[in-house]
Amino acid sequence: METYVLGDIHGAYRALQQVLERSPFRPGLDRLIHLGDVADGWPETPECVQLLLSIPNSIWLQGNHDWWVAEWMVTEAPHASANMSWLRQGGQSTYAAYQGGPQEQIRQHFHAFFSQQLPYFEDEAGNLYVHGGYDPAIAITRQDPYDLIWNRELWQYGQEAYHYTECFIGHTPTAPASLVPCQRANVWNLDQGAGYSGRLSLMNVRTKEFVQSDAVPKLYPGVKGR
């Protein structure tokens, strides 16, 4: 079994299809770890969720955008009452996508996917997977899950992920400075700006071989992302 790690999707279903087709990833044999932010930006969040649900042996981490979506799904608040920060930062496309589909899909995806996302994951090789980052000076079990989805200091300051072999994160786009997965100390960043004008990345954790989608705006001509 190989482990593959997937960056921030942000509703780009066509990009998700591309990386799965281009990668040697074997559904049902290999493990897939999604680093969070399946939602918000491009218009196909429900399709992304449905595809991830169909892949056996998958682990889904919660991103800050997923947190917002889960909050909305709990209440199914009308547009006027929804979190405006969420709507302005890509949530409008997610809201529209779910409102345009079957209403039962909102509850189905909340219970089957969004409520099942993890704050972090540690594998048998001593690697850590977390959406935003964490404070290396404090045991991760003692840290607020909300901080784990928003932390940027681990990446921005080039901190080492102490006590771990390697750490894999998303959340802070490397694009436009870099359109490929980047490493600082023992931390790898898999967010190459798919929510904006960048690409979606899927990497083999052991070999570091990766595939990417096309630039996402080319996959959605005439559609505005985040």
Rank of each mutant, 00 (worst) to 15 (best):
143 Q>A: 08
214 D>K: 03
48 C>H: 05
100 G>V: 03
110 F>K: 10
122 E>S: 03
86 W>M: 07
203 M>N: 04
36 G>K: 01
66 D>H: 01
90 G>C: 07
170 G>M: 05
98 Y>Q: 07
31 R>T: 15
30 D>K: 15
105 Q>N: 10
22 R>D: 01
146 Y>V: 12
75 T>P: 02
152 R>D: 11
164 Y>F: 14
195 G>F: 15
175 A>V: 13
101 G>S: 12
67 W>M: 12
185 A>L: 02
101 G>M: 13
74 V>E: 14
138 I>W: 08
89 Q>F: 11
172 T>D: 13
126 G>N: 12
120 Y>A: 01
66 D>Y: 01
169 I>N: 00
3 T>G: 09
156 Q>G: 09
103 Q>C: 06
45 T>N: 07
91 G>H: 00
169 I>Y: 00
178 S>E: 14
170 G>A: 05
223 V>G: 10
42 W>G: 00
214 D>F: 06
52 L>Q: 02
127 N>G: 07
201 S>N: 12
73 M>W: 08
135 D>Y: 05
38 V>K: 01
148 L>E: 08
138 I>K: 12
98 Y>H: 08
9 I>C: 08
120 Y>N: 03
133 G>P: 15
44 E>K: 10
19 V>F: 00
48 C>M: 07
44 E>R: 13
94 T>M: 03
121 F>Q: 11
49 V>N: 02
203 M>R: 04
209 E>L: 08
87 L>A: 07
79 H>T: 09
174 T>F: 01
35 L>S: 03
135 D>W: 02
131 H>Y: 06
157 Y>L: 14
75 T>L: 13
99 Q>D: 05
194 A>E: 08
110 F>S: 06
132 G>M: 04
26 R>F: 00
149 I>Y: 04
53 L>G: 03
2 E>R: 15
47 E>F: 02
212 Q>I: 03
143 Q>S: 11
66 D>S: 06
77 A>I: 01
138 I>M: 09
20 L>W: 01
